[in-house]
Design a protein around this nucleic acid. Structure first.
Lengths: 220, 220
DNA sequence: CGAAGGTAACCGTACGGACGGTCAGTGGTC
DNA sequence: GACCACTGACCGTCCGTACGGTTACCTTCG
């Protein structure tokens, strides 16, 4: 649940502007104008623009962490848990769209800056949770062994990027995209009877062709 | 190859600033100062800041399109071609880092704005190329049938997101990440002897648990 | 009860600075 | 003399933030 009251309104409107225009282009005057209050009021409630972003960040991550914990609790196997998390990733594009887009758009601003410390901690917690699911799956034999650190980030990417192309009013529903994501990721993670990587023989050729092509065009 | 001469210097420096700080925080004064020339010179060469971004965008995409075409030419099967493209995706984080980060960071600004039309066209061309490889693979029976439109975008996401976490000087090399990405994506795309989706039975349960968890926390 | 005192939401204005862009002009080179 | 790269002063605008003041409500105590 997002915060209530006037401060909640400000946060909600700010969130929408960030989602639509980005952090830099979201300014106090427009928010105050739309809400029929003065710029000073926003400052009164949140102090600085950066802290307003931090509030958005934290309220978003709080929701996601709580949901992720529930999803993990309610599903039995690592496979189901991961599928659930992936599915949820995509659903957020619809059920909590503005905050999701705002968050994914401006995630990079949370790198430094002491104001974002709390948000960063929660993000790390979330990543750890996903990694725990992956590790569990590897341990239980459901997933093939892999570099959990890297794979988790690659998987995140698929979902984090979706805001740039997914259209809630488009022809493809979030449910379908979620299912596709589950297919893509689990298909690659589940242990298969057929031996893994029947392609490593050709890997050398592939790597060489890529390196050569890059050198031919870009140089270096 | 990036453009040469004074204009090339400006573009290169601009690219670095965008990579490091983002488009909004990259301003003419700093670039001019660093290059020992005046703001007016930048305007003289590029007109507006937006056109400077368009130039960065186009020069980046020109390189990527040329390489992608070469990679596709030089590799035989859709599997190899896709592996090559994926591998290249990650390598760009190293071999053309500043332009890659700048591009991936600010890709969203290319949505509207007539100045970016050319860049958008090239991006669409690139996406089409990847989709053609996917379709070829499905047609040849190497890849399981899937929604190529959606899968291609999900795959793109993994790579496009990498700039937020990948560190060229970190312990994991781009080559390793590239290999992991190939594993993840091809593992999910390759036809396996074992029947696809032994998990759809449990899908209903997963979907229900996710929806319920989101409703419990976020509401709606 | 009611005056006093405190607190928090909110307003309006003003400021200091940065930024993108303009423009008239300079100097060198075919 | 036409063209080119380049200069540097300047402009209009916008934005985050500081700050002093007002209102409204709640608590406390005589």
């Amino acid at each position: 649940m997002p915060p209530k009251g006037r401060a909640g309104d400000i946060l909600a409107t700010f969130t929408r502007y960030v989602a639509e225009r980005g952090y830099d282009a979201a300014n106090f005057s427009d928010i105050a104008g739309e809400l029929g209050l003065s710029k000073g009021t926003i400052v009164h409630h949140f102090g600085t623009k950066e802290r307003l972003l931090a509030a958005l960040h934290e309220s978003y991550m709080r929701r996601r962490l709580a949901e992720a914990a529930l999803i993990r609790e309610r599903l039995a196997t690592p496979t189901q848990q991961l599928a659930g998390l992936l599915y949820a990733f995509v659903l957020y594009q619809v059920v909590d769209r503005e905050a999701t887009v705002a968050f994914q758009r401006e995630i990079v601003r949370l790198a430094d800056s002491e104001a974002m410390a709390q948000g960063r901690r929660m993000r790390a917690e979330y990543l750890d949770l996903v990694r725990a699911v992956l590790s569990d799956g590897v341990a239980s034999g459901e997933f093939r062994s892999c570099d959990v650190e890297v794979q988790s980030l690659l998987i995140f990417g698929s979902a984090q990027w979706a805001w740039t192309w997914f259209d809630p009013d488009g022809p493809v529903s979030a449910e379908e995209v979620g299912a596709q994501l589950v297919d893509l990721v689990l298909g690659g993670l589940l242990v298969r009877r057929t031996r893994l990587s029947g392609l490593t023989e050709a890997d050398g050729k592939v790597v060489h062709a890529v390196r050569q092509s890059i050198a031919d065009i870009t140089g270096s």
